[in-house]
């Protein structure tokens, strides 16, 4: 409150004054590509673009997933796994409300994903069953992420349509990176420095 008027009322009043007679409906031209069919090449493109970010990509059939996960983890690694992960993971530590410090002491994390975007090489997690809360895919240094081929879509609009805006989402395009030193990309800052994607099916 300032002079008895709330900031909210003041700002809304100032907005209305500022717009004044200019208020009018604006047509948004949506003739960019909104919906695209997924073909076999889309999945190849996804693999290629994920690898472009210097993430490691392993392709396999659906029944090879567990073996690939096991092969991806260092020996005796302790890895956190979310509830609902459909694959068995050696050295699994269930996410039992682990503290950030505890997570920092683990070697990695294994999760599934919600969507893969081919054009941008992006994986989107929406942190439900099989993906877990946000912290578990953030603090450990290795993230093994299983994406099924049938989860891959062509472009960003296709992904947006599949996602629920009320859920937290994390869009991951390669390992953590920075361009802050002379605008050159360097992998590996605060998020997992190694991202390994198992593309199954």
């Amino acid at each position: 409150m300032r002079d008895g008027v709330s900031a909210r009322d003041d700002i809304l009043r100032d907005v209305r004054r500022a717009v004044g007679e200019a208020r009018r409906p604006v047509d948004v031209p949506r003739d960019y590509r909104r919906e695209r069919v997924v073909e076999a090449a889309t999945v190849d493109l996804f693999a290629e673009r994920v690898a472009d970010y210097r993430a490691e990509v392993v392709r396999c059939s659906l029944d090879e997933v567990e073996a690939r996960i096991a092969a991806a983890l260092p020996p005796h690694a302790q890895v956190v796994v979310p509830d609902g992960l459909p694959w068995a993971v050696p050295g699994a530590v269930p996410d039992d409300r682990l503290t950030p410090a505890h997570l920092d002491g683990l070697d990695g994390v294994v999760t599934g994903a919600t969507v893969g975007i081919a054009e941008t090489g992006t994986i989107v997690l929406s942190h439900g069953p099989g993906e877990g809360r946000r912290a578990i895919t953030l603090v450990p240094d290795l993230h093994v992420c299983v994406v099924r081929a049938d989860q891959v879509v062509a472009g960003v609009p296709d992904a947006i349509r599949l996602l629920d805006p009320t859920r937290p989402t994390t869009w991951i395009s390669g390992p953590s990176a920075t361009s802050d030193i002379e605008l050159d990309r360097v992998e590996g800052v605060h998020g997992p420095r190694t991202l390994l994607v198992i593309l199954a099916g």
């Binding site: 937290p168 994390t170 953590s176 990309r185």
Partner: peptide, 21 residues
Amino acid sequence: STGERMNPYTSTWAGVQPGDG
């Protein structure tokens, strides 16, 4: 901005998510 197809991380959140964050 960074001249990438996509930046490494984008986070979205809708208020409070029970048990997460």
